[in-house]
Simulated scan of single mutants.
Amino acid sequence: MAIAIEENVLHVTRPNDTKENRALHGLTRTLIHNMVVGVTEGYKKELDVNGVGYRVAKEGNKLVMNLGFSHQVIMEEVPGITIEVPGPNKIIINGCDKQQVGQFAAEVREKRPPEPYKGKGIKYTDEVIRRKAGKTGAKK
């Protein structure tokens, strides 16, 4: 891919129209766009923690989570990522790298994914959990 700057505008051009070059053209343009947006505005993921006794706190540069295990789950803040905990049930992850923000949010969510029966666990704020009916009594 050829990248040129003309009058404060980045232009991405491809050498020919083969299928691989067309795919790489869109990929390159999108990666550059994500970098520009990340530096100017930044990326943010919000997570909610639902469940009795589930809570999160920030101690220094560590995220400390009580998720119903016999121990606390502690995650270190990654360079380039900032973690905010405005309340005991809310986590906000900020950063300029879209991939890194999404990956860290997925790793936090992985510690206790939401379950479909009571909805307990860590979920994205805009995520919808499909609920299931529990067991019913024995039928005769």
Rank of each mutant, 00 (worst) to 15 (best):
M65I: 03
M1T: 10
P114Y: 04
T125D: 10
K44T: 15
V73P: 01
K98G: 03
E127I: 01
S70V: 05
V73R: 01
Y117H: 11
T136D: 14
K44D: 08
L24Y: 11
Q99N: 09
E20H: 05
T40W: 11
I74Y: 00
I129L: 06
T13S: 15
F104G: 02
G42K: 07
K140R: 11
V9Y: 07
V85Q: 04
D97I: 12
N21D: 07
H25D: 07
E127D: 04
P86Y: 03
T30S: 14
E127W: 00
I91S: 00
A138W: 07
E20R: 07
R130K: 13
R109P: 05
T136F: 10
P79Y: 07
G119E: 04
S70N: 10
Q100V: 08
N89C: 06
T30M: 13
E127P: 01
I81L: 07
K132Y: 10
N94G: 01
R112M: 11
N8Q: 13
H11D: 04
K118C: 05
V9F: 09
K140C: 08
P113K: 02
L27W: 09
P88F: 11
E46P: 06
E115K: 02
N94H: 11
I5W: 09
Q72M: 11
V36L: 15
I3F: 08
I122H: 03
T40A: 14
K58P: 04
F69K: 10
P79G: 08
E59I: 12
V56K: 04
F104V: 04
R112N: 11
T40L: 15
N66H: 13
P15D: 11
D17S: 12
N94D: 09
T18P: 03
G137K: 14
F104Y: 14
Y117I: 13
T13G: 08
N61K: 14
E6T: 13
L63S: 02
V52C: 05
V9W: 05
P114A: 07
A133V: 09
V37I: 15
G119P: 06
L27N: 07
I5D: 09
N34A: 13
E59Y: 06
I32N: 03
Q99H: 12
G68S: 02
E7N: 15
G51M: 04
K19T: 08
K98M: 12
Q103S: 15
R29Q: 12
N16F: 07
P113F: 04
V39C: 06
G60P: 12
N8K: 13
P88M: 08
L63V: 03
M35R: 12
A138K: 14
T125Y: 07
I83D: 01
L10N: 00
G51C: 08
H25R: 07
H71Y: 15
G38Q: 08
G137H: 10
G53V: 06
H71P: 00
I83F: 01
E41N: 15
G134K: 01
P113E: 02
R14W: 00
P15V: 09
K140P: 11
I91D: 00
A133T: 08
E77W: 01
G119S: 05
H71Q: 11
H71V: 10
C96M: 08
K140D: 10
K120I: 09
I129E: 01
V101R: 04
I74L: 04
Y43A: 05
